[in-house]
Amino acid sequence: MKHKLLPLSETMHYILLALREPLHGYAVMQKTEEMSSGTVILAAGTLYGAIENMSKHDWIEPVGHSGRRKIYMITAEGRRILKVEQDRLLHILSLYEGSESNEKV
């Protein structure tokens, strides 16, 4: 059966993508804001919950500290999840293109 967190929510998706480099929580929010051109702005409780949840599933892991802040990074399992999502989205995108060419006919 499909993992219960799949398909990824927009929040989880951005966090996983951001954590391809090591970052602490607040930096994940900043990175997400930047990557989404300001359309996805994570709030504290949402970010905390998502990090907890994804750590529990070993998609991300703490890799060190910066002061009192914990630094997280994506794991091999997390990258595998991203790959699954990438394939799913690419497939959906191909359907978009497909239907467009049909309309032209």
Partner: peptide
């Protein structure tokens, strides 16, 4: 209990999933 100065970012949850989990 969380308190902050009132500005344009006043929520602690930014998506449906996290609010539903709450």
């Amino acid at each position: 209990y969380w308190q902050k100065e009132n500005d344009h970012r006043n929520e602690i949850f930014s998506d449906r999933e996290s609010k539903a989990n709450y």
